[in-house]
Simulated scan of single mutants.
Amino acid sequence: MLIPRALVTRKVRWALKDKGYNILKSPLPLDNEDPTWYAEKVDDIWKYLDDLAGAPFQEPNVLVIDDALQIIRDEDLRGSVWV
């Protein structure tokens, strides 16, 4: 299902989690004013993150959706998401 470029609000993060997505990835730098995130489903989040650590300078910015729901307020998370 394609969600048109929706802002990464708490409501959208919950909807993505309910659909089984567990990470958001962005190829843009962290200081980008309007990053674009792509929702993905990975079997083992921590293995995925460990695997990324083996390829320095090639890894995308990754946000774990559960973490984003627990610790990030809407006003602190910028950008929009595609799935």
Rank of each mutant, 00 (worst) to 15 (best):
16 L>I: 01
8 V>A: 11
32 N>D: 15
6 A>Q: 13
34 D>R: 10
52 L>H: 10
43 D>P: 06
20 G>F: 02
58 Q>V: 08
57 F>D: 10
4 P>C: 08
36 T>F: 11
20 G>D: 01
74 D>C: 02
11 K>Q: 15
6 A>Y: 05
9 T>W: 03
11 K>F: 09
70 Q>R: 10
73 R>D: 14
29 P>R: 10
12 V>K: 05
48 Y>D: 11
8 V>I: 08
70 Q>P: 01
12 V>S: 04
29 P>C: 10
72 I>W: 03
14 W>E: 14
79 G>W: 02
54 G>S: 11
66 D>Y: 03
22 N>I: 03
40 E>F: 14
45 I>L: 07
47 K>M: 12
10 R>F: 05
8 V>M: 04
48 Y>T: 09
43 D>Q: 12
64 V>L: 00
67 D>Q: 05
66 D>E: 12
23 I>E: 02
54 G>R: 14
50 D>N: 15
81 V>C: 07
71 I>G: 02
70 Q>T: 04
24 L>I: 02
4 P>Q: 14
66 D>R: 05
40 E>G: 08
7 L>Q: 13
17 K>T: 02
14 W>P: 00
13 R>N: 03
45 I>D: 09
37 W>N: 04
64 V>P: 00
5 R>M: 15
4 P>G: 09
37 W>T: 04
55 A>P: 05
32 N>R: 09
64 V>G: 01
19 K>L: 13
21 Y>R: 02
62 V>L: 02
67 D>E: 11
7 L>W: 08
22 N>K: 01
28 L>T: 13
48 Y>M: 07
